[in-house]
Design a binder for these strands. Structure first.
Length: 296
DNA sequence: ACTCAGGACGCTA
DNA sequence: TAGCGTCCTGAG
């Protein structure tokens, strides 16, 4: 059947997406935008998003989504995997910009920017600050196991939802420290309290103009310019965001002749250079240099 | 035992 | 407003 712009097929316990050339699970899940997708022994990925356990793999050019159904595909996964966007067209735009993007989009083919939950991004990227990916994953798993809902088992493992603000507010600073958040414990604690007490719904940030959104995000404890850009890009559909970490800073200096400037100045430099597609450019470039350790 | 990687905060000037 | 010390953890 055809759903919106794509061809899908209902299969046992799931959905098959037919003939998507720009969909590469390993690149999507390893490009630094998400922390809860783990590779199984059979090469598929299992993760939790939007309170659901999903398994995903690529077979004969088709994408297989398991442990789901048509309703969830239409209501959740279509948007989550940004299936309404033509990534072929996006790549065509980026690769004529310059040769670095040409190489980066070839290398990172099949990357898609996931439309993730804003609240989960807020907490996840606070935890990411000055931290490494395995440690971030562990901390997020810990808070999910301790404060989220049990979603049941899949392939012998038990999965938990990411806790809501109300659920996470049950954790003290000490609890969070014990869950290995490190010095970010107090940031997560303060931010959770701020969200809960203000009655803010992080979904409302999607409607904000990008610069306002960025500014509002930076009001939370533990959220600086880079973390705010990640939250805005991955959780609030602000595709002109340009998160600058040490890797992106290196790219801009190595590839684009930028001076050794502060992260905030580098952010403006990148946004000027790449315009409304800055977030996509950043993602391909980041994945490219990080995987190949270019400029280290 | 020591060094390093990785961003935000808060103090100083 | 810029510059810099500090925060935590695990790997090498």
């Amino acid at each position: 059947m055809i759903y919106k712009n794509i061809e899908i097929e209902e299969i046992e316990n799931g959905i098959k997406i037919i003939g998507q050339s720009n969909f590469e699970p390993s690149h999507i899940f390893d490009c630094g935008q998400c922390f809860r997708w783990m590779k199984e022994d059979d090469g598929s990925y299992t993760g939790v998003a939007m309170g659901k356990i999903l398994n995903i793999s690529k077979r004969d050019g088709d994408i297989i989504l398991l442990n789901t159904n048509l309703g969830d595909f239409e209501n959740i996964w279509y948007d989550y995997f940004d299936l309404g966007r033509d990534y072929g067209q996006m790549i065509d735009k980026l690769k004529v910009h310059d040769d670095n993007l040409l190489k980066a989009t070839e290398f990172g083919h099949g990357i898609r920017l996931l439309q993730q939950d804003g609240w989960e991004m807020l907490i996840s990227f606070i935890i990411s600050s000055n931290n490494r990916i395995p440690m971030i994953q562990r901390a997020i798993n810990n808070i999910s196991e301790n404060y989220g809902d049990c979603l049941g088992e899949y392939k012998g493992k038990t999965y938990y939802s990411f806790p809501s603000p109300a659920q996470l507010s049950k954790a003290s600073v000490e609890d969070l420290r014990n869950l290995k958040l490190g010095f970010r414990d107090k940031y997560v604690y303060e931010t959770t309290k701020a969200v809960l007490e203000s009655g803010l719904d992080m979904v409302d940030f999607i409607k904000m103009e990008a610069d306002i959104c960025h500014k509002e995000l930076m009001k939370f404890k533990g959220v600086g310019a880079k973390v705010a850009d990640c939250i805005a890009l991955f959780g609030m559909r602000k595709y002109d965001s340009f998160p600058v970490d040490v890797w992106v800073k290196r790219v801009m200096q190595e590839f684009y002749g930028a001076e050794d400037m502060s992260l905030v100045k580098m952010r403006a430099y990148g946004r000027d250079l790449f315009g409304e597609d800055a977030g996509f450019a950043q993602q391909y470039l980041f994945y490219y240099v990080r995987e190949l350790e270019i400029g280290k």
